[in-house]
Design a binder for these strands. Structure first.
Length: 205
DNA sequence: AAGGTTGACAACCGCCCCGGT
DNA sequence: CACCGGGGCGGTTGTCAACCT
C-alpha cells in the first residue's frame, strides 16, 4: 500500500547541501531550465531526491530571491494576508517579490506569531486572545478558502456577515487596501479555491 | 568557562491535486 | 472512468548559533 517513494532513498544524500551540490544544481538549471525534478538529480549528477532539488532551488538558489531581513511593510502584508488566507504560505509569498513560502512560514512561526501573542492577539484568528470569537475558534486556523459547496455559496454575497468579518480581519485595525495577485505557481488554489480567493479579492477592493 | 535553553531557518516528510494515459 | 506519476504545498523536524544561568 501507499505510494512508491519519490526516489531511491538508499542512494540519496540528505541534510545540508554542499557548495558543490549547489553549483551542480545551479548550472544544470541554467542550462536546462526548471522542471523535470524527478529526473533532474540523475541528469545533473546529484545524489539527491528530486523534491530536495526543487526545494533547494526554490528556497535558496533562485537568483531572484531577496534574502535578508523582512521590512516593516512586508511584515504588515504578511499579517494582513494571513488574516485573510490563513496558512496559505504560497499565496502569501506570491505577494512578496523575492520571498519564498518556506521563508515566510519560518518568519511567521518565529517572529510574527510571537509579536502577535505579545500584543495579546491570537495569531490564528487575528483577534484578541480573550475575544469570544477567538475563544470559540480557539487554536483552529481561520477557515482557509474552501471549495464552493452549497453552504458556502453565500460567501459571495455582498452582505458582510459576522463570520466574514472574522475570516477577513474584522475587528483589527488593518489597512485592507490590498490587491491579491494569484501567483502563477499556485495551481492548487487557482482551481480548487479560486472562488473564495475571488471573494477575498472583491472584498479587498 | 561550561552546560542548558531558546531562536532561527534549512531541509524533510507525507499528503493532495492535476494532467496524461 | 480509473490509475499513475509529477509537482506542489503545509506541517514538522533537525541542526547550529546565540544567549542565559
Amino acid at each position: 500500500m501507499g505510494r512508491s517513494p519519490c526516489c531511491e532513498k538508499a542512494h540519496t544524500n540528505k541534510g545540508a547541501w554542499s557548495k558543490e551540490e549547489d553549483e551542480r544544481l545551479i548550472s544544470y538549471i541554467r542550462a536546462h531550465g526548471e522542471g523535470g525534478w524527478r529526473s533532474l538529480p540523475k541528469a545533473a549528477g546529484l545524489l539527491r531526491c528530486g523534491k530536495s532539488c526543487r526545494l533547494r532551488w526554490i528556497n535558496y538558489l533562485r537568483p531572484d530571491l531577496k534574502r535578508g531581513n523582512f521590512t516593516k511593510e512586508e511584515d504588515d502584508v504578511i499579517i494582513k494576508l494571513h488574516s485573510l488566507l490563513g496558512n496559505k504560505w504560497s499565496l502569501i509569498a506570491g505577494r512578496l517579490a523575492g520571498r519564498t513560502d518556506n521563508e515566510i512560514k519560518n518568519y511567521w512561526n518565529t517572529h510574527i506569531k510571537r509579536k502577535l501573542l505579545s500584543r495579546g492577539m491570537d495569531p490564528q484568528t487575528h483577534r484578541p486572545i480573550n475575544h469570544p470569537a477567538a475563544a470559540k475558534i480557539d487554536s483552529t486556523p481561520p477557515p482557509p478558502p474552501k471549495e464552493n459547496n452549497s453552504s458556502s455559496a453565500d460567501n459571495t454575497s455582498t452582505t458582510t456577515t459576522t463570520e466574514e468579518e472574522e475570516n477577513c480581519g474584522g475587528g483589527l485595525d488593518l489597512d485592507l487596501d490590498l490587491c491579491i495577485g494569484i501567483p502563477s505557481h499556485a495551481n492548487k488554489y487557482r482551481k480548487k479555491e479560486s472562488f473564495n480567493l475571488k471573494s477575498c479579492y472583491d472584498f479587498l477592493r
